[in-house]
């Protein structure tokens, strides 16, 4: 996958577990350079390999690891750009959920060679949604669970998320919106400089 994705995983591991475990992981994956470049393209299977090695070295459950990665992307102060760009998607959490259908295209507008997995939101009732993701990367749905949990917090919405498993290349996440404005949420200024 794109260097941005690989760099995000690297940053997550270093910020959460430290630089030493990352060196071990990089060595185990036989990376030419232990540090990814955000704006470079890498061969497709390198991302899976990094995740496999990381879960082994850190003795972490794969689902937990990916979910924490998703949360990290939104809530870590050093990753502010991701949170802000996602917040541009909608004025409230439901609006944001609908913007996920366009996430792939939005990402490509910004970085033309960044191909994120295709997401699709279905609305079952006004409070029940499901999000499907099609990706070669096994477990991408877990990343979304973490990311959506953090975004719900950010908007101040109360949600329950449920990973629905993987069939073929498609994974499903069930989203139950318990309360639209449960808490104040974090402020989002259109023109803030990060």
């Amino acid at each position: 996958m794109h260097g941005l994705v690989n760099k995000a995983i690297e940053a997550f591991v270093i910020d959460t577990y430290g630089a030493q475990p990352w060196r071990v992981i990089a060595q185990m994956c036989e990376l030419d350079d232990p540090h990814f470049e955000a704006m470079m393209s890498y061969e497709g299977d390198i991302t899976s390999r990094v995740i496999d090695c990381a879960t082994r070295v850190l003795k972490a459950d794969r689902a937990d690891f990916l979910q924490n990665l998703g949360t990290y992307l939104v809530s870590q102060p050093s990753q502010q750009a991701v949170r802000r760009l996602l917040r541009f998607g909608g004025v409230d959490f439901v609006d944001f959920l609908y913007s996920l259908d366009d996430l792939r295209d939005r990402a490509r507008l910004a970085v033309s060679d960044l191909h994120l997995p295709r997401l699709e939101l279905r609305e079952h009732t006004s409070n029940q949604f499901s999000l499907t993701v099609r990706s070669k990367l096994d477990g991408f749905g877990h990343v979304l669970v973490g990311l959506l949990t953090a975004m719900a917090d950010d908007y101040g919405a109360l949600v329950m998320l449920d990973y629905g498993g993987r069939r073929g290349e498609v994974e499903t996440v069930a989203i139950a919106l318990l309360e639209r404005s449960f808490a104040e949420g974090n402020s989002f200024e259109l023109g803030a400089r990060v």
């Binding site: 760009l85 541009f88 939005r106 200024e189 990060v194």
Partner: peptide, 27 residues
Amino acid sequence: YRLTSADFAATDLAIEMLYLVEAKSAA
């Protein structure tokens, strides 16, 4: 003017433009 999404018409492309400006500068 500390404007928010609510200050623009729902059909206005301003938010998309702001998104792009920010995404492009990050890239």
